[in-house]
Structures are given as C-alpha cells and as structure tokens.
Design a protein around this nucleic acid. Structure first.
Lengths: 273, 273
DNA sequence: GCAGAAATAGAATATTTGTTCCAATAATTG
DNA sequence: CAATTATTGGAACAAATATTCTATTTCTGC
C-alpha cells in the first residue's frame, strides 16, 4: 500500500534526517510545513507532545500524525521513542562539572579553566555554523596547487602558524614558515608558483598584511585566516576563511582557529596525495 | 503542613540539584532510592515517564510521585516541565550542522573540519572531568613564586609553548622560552629561584625531558603538562597536569591543552598581582 | 470545467500516563 | 509491648495525549 521507501522506519537519527531531506521536495503543503518545522527543531521531538509540535508547525495535529506515518513510523509515539532513546548527550555531567570547577571562586585556577573551556567549546560550535564551505574548498585548491606554501602569522597568531608548519611538514607539503626570527625578511623567498597562507587577528599585524600584499602584487594566490570579512587581509587575498573565536578576558582560546587550520592543512596534504 | 523548604519549587536545574543534595540525608528508604536514581539520571527526566523512572529506581510509581512533591513540585508533570524547558541549548542544531559538514564526503575539507571540531569539543569536555584541581593549584603556586618561568615544549607541543610565552609576556611574568633555535642550549639560563614549565606528549621529546631533569637535579621546581601520569616527566616534576586530548587521525586538536595552558598562565599572572 | 484522486481539518475515540487515596506494613516512642 | 505515627504499595480514578475516521476542500489530468 505504502510507497516502497516508507515500509521501514528509520532506526537512527541520521537515517531519519536522510529520509527527511530525501522526501522534502515531493511533499504537499501541510506535510512540508511539518517537515520543515521538524527539520529546524529536531531536538524538541523528544520532549514535546503532538499538539505542541503541531502548533509550532502551524498545522493541525492530524497533519503531524500523517507526517510521522510518511516517515515510516506507525505513529508519533514510535517516532518519539527514537529521539528519546537517542537523547543521551554530554549535557548532564558536563555542565555540572563546569559548575563545580567554577565553585573554587572567581579567579581561582579551576574557575579560570572552566571559563576557557567554555569559551573554546562555544567557539567550536559557532565555527560549525559560520564556516564558508566554498571558501574552504577554494583555499584547499589554491594551496594544493602551490609549489611551496608560505605560512605567516605573528603574535597571537604565531602558535597557529607554528602548528600549521608542523602539520605541513608531517604531510610532506613543502612549507616555509615566516617567523620573523632575527627580523629577517624572507619576502624574496616567494617564487612564482608558490602560495601564501596568512593568519592575523585584530589588532592586525603589519608584517603579515605586508607579506600578503606583496604576494598578491606579484600574482601569487593568498589564503587568509582571520577574524572577520572586513579584515585588512580581505583586500589582498583570493580566499578568506573567518573563525568566530570567543574570547575570555584578553585571551582567545584558539580552539576554533586551530581546528580550522589543521583541517585546512590535512585537506591540502590529502589533495596532494 | 510541609516543611518550610518544600513550599517553593526549584526554578532552575541548579536549584534542583542543590535541594536534592540538601535533602538526601534525611529521607526514608524508598524516597532515598528515588533521590539517588534521579541524581544519577537527571538528564532522563525530560524524556521519561513516571513508570519508566520508577522502574529504574526500583520503586512503585507512587513513591516517585511523593518524591516529586517532597522536592516542592505539585507533581511529576511540573517537575518534568522544568527539565523539558531547561533543555534547549547546546545540542540542537549543532549536531545537525556537524552532520551537514560531513556530508561533503569523507576526506572533504568540511568533513575534516567537522571531525576536528568534534575532537576538540570532546577533549574540552573530558578535561572538565579529569582535571586534578589540587595539582593545578600547586602548579600555579610554584610558578607564581618563581623569579623567571622557563617554558619548554618542542614539536607538537611547541605551539602551546609559544602561546604560553605570549600570554606570560602580556601578563608581565618574566618568562624564557626554550625554543631550540640554532640548537642552542639554554640550560645554563636556569638560575636558583626559577621554575620550569615543561610540555611534552608521546612520543616524548628528549630535549624537554632532559631540561626538566636538569632543573630538578638543581633543586628547581618543575611543572609538567603532559598526556598521562606515567609520562617520563612524572619522575622529574613537582606538579603534573594531564590533559586527555582526543586525536583525529595523526593530529591532536590541542584545544584542551591550550585551555589548560592559558588558564595556568593567567592564574599565575593574577597570583603575582 | 469536470471527474477522480489526494490532501486536509476537526471531531470522536482509544490509549497511555499522571495522580490520588486508602488499607497494609513498618518504624518509633512512652 | 502497645499505641501512635510514618512509610509504603497498589488499585482506582482523572487528565492528558495519541490516534483514527470521515466529511470537506484542494489539487490533477483530461
């Protein structure tokens, strides 16, 4: 009676999402409303009633029931069971432990740690929503074609530059780190066919911007890793990657920046084979 | 009729926990079973029925109802509402977005990014549960008393060492970074009254271990930042901080390590005033 | 524009789930 | 040890919730 696809209910949340996106296009009006609301509020399924979800999607409860059946479940309860069981996430302990750490009192080492952990975590989560996949792919392509990758990043960006150089080395990608040691200026090491990976955050480092401009002027591709699209690097780069780092106090956690950097480096290494 | 405390229901999850631990001691057998089960499975309240929780606690449903009332709620439903509403943040689109990133296919840049983000996040969460507060406080005390802090960390630990040096500098803490540039060995820069902060992870770097041993032999305090308590640094350090970093592929995210390092540095800076 | 099919809304129903109450039991006190 | 009080278990009840059904509306293809 039913369509072939609907015979078996999704057994995991991932399967559920796949089926949802797969069916989204050929669905009548009300059912599509359901699908869209559910897609945007998947997390609430476990803790809501049919009536609540239906109200949220602005459809009558019966429409939502039909939606559940379209998705392959016998009804709402069966669908909800999937999400109630899948709902195990780190929530409980994690925030409790964080709270315990903070109890040492403001300024205590463990309270500080809790703050930095939280800043790092927020940064990472924000990164998943702000990442520009097209720019990331472009950046990988540019660097994968380069003869030598020149990495530049100073001050607070220097740890990231160092780590990038380390990863590139491990992946056998020819890489030169412009570290400013001895105030030596290696700009003439830039050769045709090379590419530059420039990293800087506000307050932007003059030397980094300079090198990026130089490279750009000589026709070399530049990839920028920075904090916003309005960064001074924007004008002189062919691909711009931004990371929304959450600061605590005067210091940034670097978690998101490093995650982005290492992904970039590994992808480049892989693309070169 | 009721005890004074029970007149008003907890308005937040934290208040709930406080009241729970407060009452745990003077509770009859069955109610204590409830309290203990609930304390251990707080996260399941939002997605379970009275019957399920009661079965888990091995008490009849009515006992659990009485427990809800003892806690100040009118009944189970009211208690559940607290947890259903409190549960909004964190999970919802985050894991969705992560999944979308992964959909680029294994090995695609955005899939890699998703993996590294996840590794970083897990590392940070694990850090909150594994941190040894006593060791952390001891480490801060040791470094706060030092004339000069010597930071050493090479290879994959080098980015962390660099960042520590940067933060110490910003906080006006006298600090010397042993960076191995030119293979110069600065071990004779260690003066009485100084302290060493040594960072290394498996495979451990010989030079780092060496410097720590030297310092220890000369009576200087050594703080170790490493991956396990059985690290070779353990023998030659006065305080040992371990970070449980989750790797993806061959590379570690460094998120937890950096969070620990920066907390340590800021706490030391603050302690010095 | 007219069948026929598909989709929809809302009311009616069935089921699950929460809640109360009281008799039975265990603990406490004089 | 008896009397009183507190605690417990389970059955009966009430409320909330999911589900089905059907008349009505909206699409679709000719």
């Amino acid at each position: 009676m039913d369509e072939a696809a609907a015979l078996t209910a999704p057994a995991t949340v991932d399967e559920f999402r796949d089926r949802l996106t797969g069916q989204l296009d050929d669905l009548p009006k009300r059912l599509r409303q359901c699908a869209e609301y559910i897609a945007a509020h998947t997390d609430r399924i476990a803790v809501s009633t049919v009536a609540e979800l239906a109200a949220g999607a602005d459809v009558p409860p019966s429409a939502l029931m039909r939606f559940c059946q379209i998705m392959g479940f016998s009804g709402f309860s069966e669908m909800q069971r999937l999400f109630r069981e899948a709902y195990a996430p780190g929530w409980p302990d994690y925030s409790t432990r964080l709270k315990n750490l903070k109890e040492g009192g403001a300024g205590s080492p463990s309270a500080l740690l809790a703050e930095f952990v939280e800043a790092g975590r927020l940064s990472l989560e924000a990164l998943t929503s702000s990442v520009d996949e097209a720019a990331l792919n472009a950046a990988v392509a540019l660097l994968a074609q380069a003869d030598t990758v020149h990495v530049v990043g100073l001050r607070r960006a220097f740890p990231v530059a160092i780590y990038l150089a380390y990863v590139f080395e491990k992946m056998s990608v020819p890489c030169m780190l412009h570290d400013g040691v001895g105030k030596l200026d290696h700009r003439f090491a830039l050769r045709p066919g090379d590419a530059v990976l420039a990293i800087t955050f506000a307050p932007y480092s003059e030397e980094t911007i300079q090198l990026a401009q130089d490279a750009q002027a000589r026709g070399l591709p530049v990839v920028a890793l920075t904090d916003r699209l309005t960064s001074p690097l924007a004008r002189s780069s062919n691909a711009i990657l931004t990371v929304p780092e959450v600061d605590f106090g005067a210091f940034r956690s670097l978690s998101a920046t490093i995650a982005m950097a290492i992904s970039l480096a590994v992808a480049v290494g892989a693309a070169r084979g």
